[in-house]
Design a protein around this nucleic acid. Sequence first.
DNA 1: TTGAAAGCGATACCAG
DNA 2: CTGGTATCGCTTTCAA
Lengths: 340, 340
Amino acid sequence: MPPQHQVTLAQVAEAAGVSIATASRAINGSTRKVSEEIRVRVTQTAEELGYLPNLSAQTVVKGASPTVAVLVSDIADPYFSAISSGIMAAARQAGLMVTMATSERRSADERDMIRTFRSQRPRAIVVVGSRWDQDPQAAAIEEQLAAYQQAGGRVVLVSQGPSPFDLVEIQNFEGAKALAHALVDQGGQRFGVAVGYRRLRTNADRLAGFTQGLAERSITLKEEAVAEAAFTRDGGYAAMRQLLERGVELDTVFAASDLMAFGAATAMREAGVQPGAQIGLAGFDNIALTEDVTPALTTVDAPLGEIGRRAMDLALSEGTEPRTVEVPTSVILRASTPRR
Amino acid sequence: MPPQHQVTLAQVAEAAGVSIATASRAINGSTRKVSEEIRVRVTQTAEELGYLPNLSAQTVVKGASPTVAVLVSDIADPYFSAISSGIMAAARQAGLMVTMATSERRSADERDMIRTFRSQRPRAIVVVGSRWDQDPQAAAIEEQLAAYQQAGGRVVLVSQGPSPFDLVEIQNFEGAKALAHALVDQGGQRFGVAVGYRRLRTNADRLAGFTQGLAERSITLKEEAVAEAAFTRDGGYAAMRQLLERGVELDTVFAASDLMAFGAATAMREAGVQPGAQIGLAGFDNIALTEDVTPALTTVDAPLGEIGRRAMDLALSEGTEPRTVEVPTSVILRASTPRR
DNA sequence: TTGAAAGCGATACCAG
DNA sequence: CTGGTATCGCTTTCAA
C-alpha cells in the first residue's frame, strides 16, 4: 500500500500561525471556543492547503469511526440492493459512511467479515439476511456480534427473531398467510409452492404462513405440491420444473420470492403453460419490475427501502434493550393471478 | 459516538510477557523475525483475549487504509449493483474492505463524497457512472480525484474517455451500432429510440452508435422518432408514451437501457401494443431478468460483473500511466425482436 | 531475535 | 479563548 502524503493539521496550524490545538478546534470544534477571526483564518488556510482531516487519526483517539458496516448476502440481488439503498440513504443523512461486504450466503465467511468489521470500530453493524436453522456458524457469529456490542457498538439484524440484538423483522408468515387468503378468495383451489431451502428461516416462515392461510380456508397443501430449491431465480426455475414433472394438478403457484417467481414463470412457459392463464403465479417482496413483466406479478409487498431506513434508525438510536421493529407486508394482486 | 473499549496490543503483549513491538511483529509481522515459540504464544494470547487489531491505528501509521472506496449513482439499479458485486468480489479476494456511497446522480454530492472518501485514505477510489456533458461540477470532481492520485492513491473510472485516470469503458457506441445492424438484418425498417437524457454520455453514445448503425444500412433515424426522458425505468415508460403519442410509425424501438426497455414495454401494453409483435423492442446492458420477461428482451450484453472486476484489477495494479480497458459488448437477439 | 522509544495525525485536558 | 502536552493504538527504526 503506497503511503499517501497529505496535508496535516500541523501544517495548517503552522501556516495559519496558531497552535495545533486551536487549529483542531477551529476545524472540528466540538465545543466551539474559537474567536471568529481565528476560525476564519484557519479554515481558509485549510482550504487553500487542501487539508482533509485524517479520519483514521480521529477514530484512534475517539475510539469509534463515523461508519456503519453492512453485511448482505448478495448485493446483485434486487432484494438486498433495495434494502442497502435505504440503509445508505439513511446513513448519508446521519453523516455516516458505509462499509459494505457480501457474504454470498457462506456463513463461515460471514463470521470473518464481522471480525474485519469490528477491526474498523464502526458505530454500528447491520446484518441483512435470513437466519439458517442449524447453522454451525451461528454461535460464532453471534459471539462476535455480542462482543462488539459489549464493547459499545450497536448491532442491528434484518432477519428473524428471537434475537438478542435490535431486529427488523419482515412479516413473512403473516404476509404469506394473507396471500393465501387472497388467492383462495379469487377462486384458487389447487395450490403449489416453489420454495427456497427451508433451512433458511425466510422460506420456512413463508411456507408455513401460506400453508396455514390455506388451512384456514380448509385447503390442505399436500407435501407433493411443494418443491424446494435454491432461493434464487434459478431455484425458482428448478422448483417449478419439479412441480411440472411431478404432474401435480395445479391452478396456482406461490413462489417464495419474486426472483423465484420469475424463474418459475420461465419454466412454465418452456413447458407450454402460460403463467396467469392456466396456472396463476404469485411471488413475495415486490421488487422492481414485478409490475413490468407480463402478466404483472401478484406479490406480497415488503417495503424494502423502508426496511433499510428502519434498520439505520435502530442503529442510530441509543436504547440498551434490544428492540424489534415489525415491518408489515401487504398483498398486491395483479394479473398473474386472475380471478377464476 | 460511544467510545468502544477493546483489547489492545499492549494488553496482549503484557499478558504474553513480551514487548509491544514483539507482539506487533508476531501478529502482523511484515518481515517475520519472531521465534516460532513466541509467535505461537502471542497469537494464542491474542485469541484468548479476543484481540482485534485496530485498523485505524494501523492506517494512521501506515498512511493508507486497506480499503477501496466505491461511488455509484444508485445501488438499487441492477446495472450498478451488478458492477458493485463484481467489485466487491474482487476486493475481497485482494483482502480489501469496500466503503461505498451513492451519489444519486447529483454531481454536487459526488464531489463531497469524494472528499469524504479521501479522508479515509483508501487505497483506491472507483467511480462508476456516466459522465455528464457540461457538468458544472466536473472540474471540481476531477480536481479532487487528481489531488488524491497525486497523494499516492489510485483512481479508476467506469465511464467514458478521454480520462486522465484509469478507465474501464463500455463499448456503448459499438454495441448500439452492432445492434442496429442486427435489427435491420432481421427486417426492421422503421425505428424509434427511447433514450435517457443525452447530457449523459452513455445515452449520447448509444444513440449515436445506433444512428450510425442504421445509417450504414441506409436508414435515417428521424429526430421525431427519438424520445428523450430520464435514464430509468420510468423514463423508458415516459419516452415510449411520447413516441406513441407522436404517432410515428414504428416497427422497432431501441431503448437505451434494459431498465428503460422494461418501462417502454409497459407503456406499449397500456396502449394496446404487444412488444415483440406489432413493435419490436430492444434494450442495452443485459441485466438480470431480461431472459425471464415475455417476450424475452433483445439486448446488448455488457458483462457487468466483469466490468467491476476489471475496475478492481486496475485499482490494484501499479502502473503510473493512465490506462483504458475497453469492455466489449455483444448483441443478444431474443423474442422481443422477431424476424420480420 | 527482542525491547525501548520515536513517531503517525488528531483530540482533549489542563494551565495560562 | 489559546497553547502545551499527554494520549489513542500501532508500526518501525535503532540498539542491545
